[in-house]
Design a binder for these strands. Structure first.
Lengths: 205, 205
DNA sequence: TAGATTGTTAATCGATTAACAATC
DNA sequence: TAGATTGTTAATCGATTAACAATC
């Protein structure tokens, strides 16, 4: 398994398969086919088979895929067969929404620390957490050995906060600030910017 | 301009160029080159020139692109040289964060209506808006001629709400619910699911 | 003029699809 | 056995890159 380098574009589709399979499992289904899964996620059956076969032979001719088994394998491949500690920087509205988001726990993630740099926010309670002073980001994240962070600070602050996170050992950043981050290629960034996403659709209206 | 069909993947990059150029303009810059813009967005200069040249000849040999002119052209192409009315369905934490999000106005969007189906939420004020009963989605959106919606409802409700939105004339949906939507191909959907985005990075850790 | 940078072509590279033997 | 569906190959399709003439 995993002898050759797997293209990013395939890795990017696996979480979508995972989500659909989790849903099928929740609905009590036991097996599925590339055809059926493809209809759920809007991807061709051939592509799904090709993607999955990069990692092993997880299906059976004639009957398709065991949902539970494929779920296990995908979780293992994506390394979400465990719970990752996540830091959240920026305790504004978006930070609050993420802190209260119920969808992380059963998909491999748990927020364990929240930071902000404003005096009003520091010390505030959000759920079970107390907002910490952003001045302590580096030591605090290093000590807790956190590898993943979510960034919900203003665009102007994003690059410098990202650099502190990286210095502290973070290797994956989910960036909500509407700006591109400059990071070494040992660090992964995913971007979420609602305005950008909307602008990808207006062209077609 | 626009004689041939432009690939989705190119349209998807234009908002990223737009955002970077807006930033440069805010910083007082007047011109840029494909090289410089590429460094800001992490895309090769050749690809940027190729993308932009799909729509016309907006640059000048020797000097590059006028930032103000390219901004105008990109806004026109993406149809964000105007303000689009947007409906928001789901007044939970994520809905609140979007309702208060300051980044829409100057990028072409304005939330004009918020819906929820829970008795506690209906009638509540969020910013300048009063949460409306989700039962009125179809007539209300039709009457206001709204074409874009953001969906922050639980996964279980997302498909049926999407169908009502489409029935009301919505043609672009930004879906925060962690589920794939089944829509006719006259309707565009963009997905934002923080857990999925995080799962795209854990593979590399 | 000399230097810089575009727009575009052709070559390369990579991703998707169609088809089918293998086999459950 | 007959039917279904995988994993994989080869063909197609599409996207990216490199290179350079045109020209500001």
């Amino acid at each position: 398994m995993n002898a050759e380098k797997i293209p990013d574009i395939i890795i990017g589709r696996l979480p979508v398969y995972l989500r659909a399979l989790q849903r099928m499992a929740d609905n009590g289904l036991k097996t599925t086919s590339s055809q059926e899964l493809g209809e759920h996620v809007g991807i061709s059956a051939a592509q799904i088979r090709k993607d999955i076969s990069q990692f092993g032979e997880f299906g059976k001719q004639g009957t398709g895929y065991s949902i539970a088994y494929l779920l296990d394998k995908l979780r293992e491949i994506l390394k979400v067969d465990r719970i990752w500690d996540v830091a959240l920087v920026g305790a504004g509205d978006m930070g609050h929404a993420l802190a209260n988001y119920p969808g992380f726990q059963n998909r491999g993630f748990c927020i364990v620390a929240i930071f902000d740099n404003s005096d009003e926010k520091i010390g505030q309670k959000i759920g079970a957490f107390v907002v910490q002073d952003a001045d302590n980001i580096v030591e605090s994240i290093k000590a807790a050995n956190i590898k993943i962070a979510m960034l919900t600070v203003p665009a102007i602050a994003a690059q410098s906060v990202a650099e502190k996170l990286i210095q502290a050992g973070v290797r994956a950043i989910l960036n909500y600030a509407p700006i591109n981050l400059n990071v070494p290629n040992t660090v992964k960034v995913q971007y979420i910017d609602p305005a950008t996403h909307l602008q990808r659709m207006t062209y077609y209206l």
